[in-house]
Simulated scan of single mutants.
Amino acid sequence: MPHLTDVPPRSREAAYPVPWLVDRSRLPWCTLRNVGAERVTDVATQFFGDGWAEPAVPRASLSPGDELQIVFFGERAIASGQVTVHWRRPDGREYAWTFVC
């Protein structure tokens, strides 16, 4: 049976802030902006809900300040949708973050 002394100490690394700002002011178009300090690569999106959403121009990477436009299709896509963004940081670690439309 494990003991408390067998548990490794927690990392002292600061939490990684999500580098995304979502602008919904022009729905059914949604803008995802990289507000972080790093260039992110392998950027991909998944849509969950009624309808679908697609990036207007698929991009493999986004530098700080770059944007990705996403358009929603379907009667209930905006009301019911969630978008998950996947990306990699320069060190190769992969992240995912979900936002609601």
Score class of each variant (00 low, 15 high):
residue 34 N to G: 10
residue 80 S to Y: 06
residue 87 W to H: 07
residue 86 H to S: 14
residue 45 T to A: 06
residue 85 V to P: 02
residue 64 P to S: 06
residue 77 A to D: 04
residue 76 R to K: 14
residue 66 D to Y: 02
residue 86 H to L: 12
residue 33 R to N: 05
residue 49 G to E: 10
residue 54 E to A: 10
residue 36 G to H: 08
residue 71 V to F: 11
residue 68 L to G: 01
residue 56 A to P: 00
residue 62 L to P: 00
residue 28 P to K: 07
residue 53 A to K: 01
residue 32 L to A: 06
residue 86 H to R: 13
residue 58 P to V: 02
residue 39 R to C: 12
residue 79 A to R: 13
residue 61 S to W: 05
residue 52 W to I: 01
residue 38 E to N: 12
residue 83 V to S: 03
residue 45 T to R: 01
residue 76 R to H: 14
residue 62 L to C: 02
residue 79 A to Q: 14
residue 65 G to Q: 03
residue 68 L to H: 03
residue 82 Q to E: 14
residue 37 A to P: 06
residue 27 L to P: 00
residue 46 Q to L: 15
residue 42 D to M: 08
residue 47 F to E: 03
residue 73 F to L: 11
residue 74 G to N: 07
residue 75 E to L: 12
residue 58 P to I: 02
residue 36 G to M: 11
residue 28 P to D: 04
residue 46 Q to T: 14
residue 77 A to L: 05
residue 41 T to S: 15
residue 45 T to L: 10
residue 60 A to I: 00
residue 80 S to W: 04
residue 64 P to W: 05
residue 35 V to G: 08
residue 87 W to K: 06
residue 35 V to S: 11
residue 57 V to I: 11
residue 56 A to N: 02
residue 33 R to V: 12
residue 60 A to C: 07
residue 66 D to I: 00
residue 77 A to E: 07
residue 34 N to R: 05
residue 75 E to H: 11
residue 31 T to I: 14
residue 42 D to Y: 11
residue 75 E to Y: 06
residue 51 G to I: 02
residue 47 F to S: 03
residue 46 Q to E: 15
residue 47 F to G: 05
residue 38 E to C: 12
residue 48 F to T: 14
residue 56 A to L: 08
residue 54 E to F: 07
residue 48 F to V: 15
residue 79 A to H: 10
residue 70 I to L: 09
residue 56 A to Y: 05
residue 67 E to K: 07
residue 44 A to M: 07
residue 86 H to I: 09
residue 36 G to V: 10
residue 48 F to D: 15
residue 83 V to H: 00
residue 46 Q to M: 12
residue 81 G to M: 08
residue 49 G to R: 02
residue 86 H to E: 11
residue 28 P to A: 09
residue 43 V to E: 01
residue 85 V to E: 01
residue 30 C to R: 03
residue 56 A to D: 12
residue 49 G to V: 04
residue 39 R to F: 01
residue 28 P to I: 08
residue 76 R to W: 11
residue 85 V to W: 02
residue 84 T to L: 07
residue 30 C to N: 03
residue 52 W to H: 13
residue 70 I to R: 04
residue 33 R to T: 15
residue 80 S to C: 06
residue 82 Q to K: 11
residue 52 W to S: 14
residue 58 P to S: 10
residue 64 P to T: 08
residue 73 F to P: 00
residue 67 E to T: 14
residue 68 L to R: 00
residue 83 V to R: 04
residue 84 T to N: 05
residue 72 F to M: 10
residue 87 W to P: 08
residue 27 L to W: 00
residue 47 F to V: 02
residue 79 A to N: 12
residue 76 R to E: 14
residue 67 E to A: 09
residue 84 T to V: 14
residue 49 G to M: 04
residue 34 N to A: 11
residue 34 N to T: 09
residue 42 D to S: 15
residue 34 N to F: 13
residue 72 F to Q: 01
residue 81 G to A: 08
residue 47 F to H: 04
residue 29 W to P: 00
residue 81 G to T: 06
residue 59 R to V: 06
residue 46 Q to K: 13
residue 47 F to M: 09
residue 42 D to H: 15
residue 84 T to M: 11
residue 41 T to D: 09
residue 65 G to D: 04
residue 53 A to D: 08
residue 81 G to V: 07
residue 54 E to H: 11
residue 28 P to H: 08
residue 43 V to D: 02
residue 40 V to W: 05
residue 66 D to F: 01
residue 74 G to R: 08
residue 48 F to H: 12
residue 71 V to W: 06
residue 64 P to E: 08
residue 37 A to Q: 14
residue 75 E to W: 05
residue 83 V to G: 01
residue 53 A to I: 03
residue 27 L to A: 13
residue 73 F to K: 07
residue 45 T to E: 07
